[in-house]
């Protein structure tokens, strides 16, 4: 009886500990969101979206940083997504279990969790040094490299979810594999692949480290891709660590904007993905 009571007590203790761990995890998320909302909203105003980043000690907005972030994220996706989608297609349709595919899958998973600052150093070495200056192009390329693993992974997974019967039907009609991929598989997996792209956007739009020494920053409005460009994460970094009140307010406003954007994007992407997987998985 004594032994039984001990076992029950031990069981209870560990279950309570696991509940506490979960509550702590949720509390951290709540604390971060709460701080962002309270401080971010007080720094928020219309001029955040209409004015340029100010010089120290004066009022201004984040327009150039928002624009720069949008441009570089978009360019990053435009460069990275085709590579990711095509490579994912190769793994799902051509390579399958070949030695090359296994290596690519492995390396891709490594790239997926590789430190982004390393990617920044890489682009610095191969783009910034030869060009002789920081540029939005370099920033976009660093982001593109970060976008590739995410799109590759989801593309392969989504193509594998397409019922094999559809592929067989297309092949039976005499279509070459490329025609099957383009006319049957891509349309069937479209929403999944697009969701993967959204996840990639969410991933790269908050990245700071790879932009520090590729795109650098720019206090002024600039649309030149060949010149340093302002971007939200680096501006937040610089402004948050500054001693100026106005800059810190802007940093919090920017942090709120970027986090809300990313959370909305990734939550909706994840919901769509899990719906698709449930639907396709049971339909098989």
């Amino acid at each position: 009886m004594n032994r039984r009571a001990f076992r029950k007590a031990k069981n209870g203790a560990f279950l309570v500990l696991s509940l506490i761990a979960t509550l702590i995890g949720l509390a951290c998320l709540a604390a971060i969101l709460w701080t962002l909302i309270t401080r971010g909203v007080s720094g928020m105003s219309l001029q955040v979206f209409t004015q340029m980043t100010p010089p120290p000690g004066s009022e201004g907005g984040l327009l150039n940083a928002l624009y720069g972030s949008a441009v570089m994220t978009l360019l990053g996706i435009l460069i990275g997504a085709p590579v990711g989608v095509l490579a994912g297609t190769y793994l799902a349709e051509y390579g399958r279990d070949s030695r090359l595919s296994i290596a690519v899958r492995f390396i891709n998973d490594v790239l997926l969790s590789a430190p982004s600052i390393i990617i920044g150093l890489f682009i610095y070495e191969i783009v910034v040094v030869p060009m002789g200056h920081f540029s939005a192009i370099a920033g976009s390329m660093a982001l593109a490299i970060l976008a590739i693993p995410v799109t590759l992974r989801t593309t392969e997974d989504m193509l594998n979810l397409v019922p094999p019967g559809m592929k067989d039907a297309s092949a039976a009609l005499g279509a070459y594999p490329w025609r099957t991929v383009v006319s049957v598989l891509y349309p069937a997996a479209r929403s999944g692949i697009v969701t993967g792209l959204l996840l990639a956007v969410a991933r790269i739009s908050g990245e700071t480290a790879p932009l520090l020494f590729t795109a650098l920053n720019n206090q002024f409005w600039s649309t030149h891709l060949n010149a340093p460009m302002a971007n939200l994460p680096v501006v937040i970094f610089q402004f948050a660590l500054s001693p100026y009140k106005e800059w810190q307010h802007l940093a919090w406003a920017g942090a709120l904007v970027i986090t809300l954007g990313i959370l909305v994007l990734s939550v909706s992407a994840r919901i769509v993905l899990s719906l698709l997987q449930a639907q396709r998985g049971s339909g098989r």
């Binding site: 990245e207 970094f237 948050a240 919090w252 959370l263 990734s266």
Partner: peptide
Amino acid sequence: PIGTAVELLAAVPSIIFGIWGLFV
């Protein structure tokens, strides 16, 4: 919901953890 919340925490950009860590 809890699984999603955990994934949300994973999606928060690292710079946000940085300023939250520094100021809070």
